[in-house]
Simulated scan of single mutants.
Amino acid sequence: MVNYNGTLLSDSDSNLTIQNRGYKYGDALFETLKVVNGTIFFWEDHYFRLMASMRILRMDIPMNFTMEFLESEILKTIDANQLLQASARVRLNVDRGEGGKYLPSEEAKVQFNISAEAQHNPFYTIDTNAKCTVDLYKDYFMAPGLLSGLKSNSKTIQVIGSIYAQENDFDNCLVLNTNKSVIEALNGNLFLVKGDTIKTPPLEDGCLKGVMRKQILELLSKDVNVTVEEASISPFELQKADELFITNVIKGIVPITKYRKKEYGSDFAQRLVTELNAKLRLI
C-alpha cells in the first residue's frame, strides 16, 4: 500500500501521472527512513532537513506539514503494509504536484507520497566477511553548493555511477567535485581514518547533508581519543588511510575493504557501530 496525500492506495491505483513535476523536472525531494517497531530512527533530523530543503527549492510548505502529522502518516503507511512490528525502509517523497513548465503554475500544489518495504536487520551490523571494493567515478563531477547537498529526485550521477560500478565489478564508487576533491560515495557520506584523526568532507565541498553523517559526527565529538576534521579529501589521501567507511541511515556504517591496490581494516568502524546501536537503544 502507498500513502498518497493521506489516502492509502494500492500501487496500481496510485494517483501519480506523467504530468507530475517530480517526474517531468525532478521538482521533488525525498527522505529515506529506517523504521523499527514503529520508531522512526532520527526522525527529527530527517524532518528538519526536509523542511530546509523545501525552503531552498522555494516550495510553499503546507500548514499541515508538521512533524507530528508526517510521522503519523508514515506510521499509518507502515501499519497498512503490516510492518508496524518489523524493520522497514520507508521513502517519503515530496513534490510540487502538477502544472507549469519550468515555472510552476499557480495550480501546482505541494503533495506527498509514502512507500514502505521490509528490511531484515532492526539494528546496524557490520559483516566482517563482506567485501566493499570501490574506485573513483570520474566521468562526471558534482558542483559544490547548496543544491548538491539536497536529497532531490535529480540523482543522475548516482544512477550512472552505479551502472559504471556494476559494469566494472565495483561495489561502490567515490564521487568527486569539480575541484577534484572526494566528497562522498554513491549512496552515502565518506569518512577517512588515519591514526587518531577522522576526516569527512565538509558540506561546502558538495557532499550530501547526511542524517547518519550527523549522528557519527556527534558520537565522534564525545571521543576524547580522536581528532575530527571536516576537511577536503584528495584522492591521494585514500591509499594512505587506515580505514575508509561509508555511512547512510539504512545500512549504518559500511567499511570499504579495498580501493585499487590498498586493502583496509574495519576495527574503528566496528567500535563505532557498537556505540551507534547503544545510542539507538535510548530512543
Rank of each mutant, 00 (worst) to 15 (best):
T125N: 14
D60I: 13
G38P: 06
D60Q: 14
L217W: 12
S234V: 05
E218M: 09
E204P: 01
V249L: 07
S152N: 11
V110P: 02
N248A: 03
T17Y: 07
K180G: 01
T32H: 07
A118R: 15
L8I: 06
K24A: 08
I74L: 06
S181L: 00
W43P: 09
P235H: 03
G188H: 05
L272D: 01
K222V: 04
Y102K: 08
E68K: 15
P62T: 11
A118L: 13
G161V: 10
L244I: 13
T227M: 08
E117T: 13
T17A: 08
W43C: 12
N248L: 04
F69T: 12
V175W: 04
T178P: 01
K194N: 14
A165S: 14
L208M: 11
G161P: 03
D60N: 15
G265W: 12
A241E: 06
D139S: 14
E275L: 15
L217A: 12
S72C: 03
R213M: 05
D135R: 14
L208S: 03
Y102G: 04
T77K: 02
T77Y: 02
R91G: 09
N189R: 03
M54R: 08
D95R: 05
D135P: 04
G97A: 05
N81D: 08
N187M: 07
N179P: 00
V159T: 05
I283H: 11
N81S: 09
V193C: 09
I183S: 01
Y259H: 13
L8Y: 01
F69L: 02
S181Q: 08
V273C: 02
T128Q: 15
L276Y: 00
K261H: 13
G149D: 06
F30A: 04
N225C: 11
L136S: 08
V182Q: 01
F141E: 00
L186S: 00
T178Y: 00
E237D: 08
G100T: 09
E243A: 11
T39Y: 12
T274D: 10
G22E: 01
S148Q: 10
L203D: 10
D13C: 12
S12D: 14
M54A: 12
K109R: 13
D169Q: 15
N5R: 07
F65E: 00
L16Y: 02
P144C: 02
I183F: 00
H46Q: 07
R91P: 09
R281D: 09
G99K: 05
S266Y: 13
S162P: 01
E230G: 10
M1P: 03
F245P: 07
K151P: 06
S234W: 05
S53V: 11
W43M: 14
E98H: 05
Y23I: 13
V35T: 14
V94A: 05
F112C: 09
N3G: 08
P201W: 03
R260Q: 15
S115K: 06
D127W: 07
I74H: 04
F42N: 14
F123L: 15
C173M: 15
Y137M: 12
I163G: 08
T274V: 13
T125R: 15
I163V: 13
A86M: 11
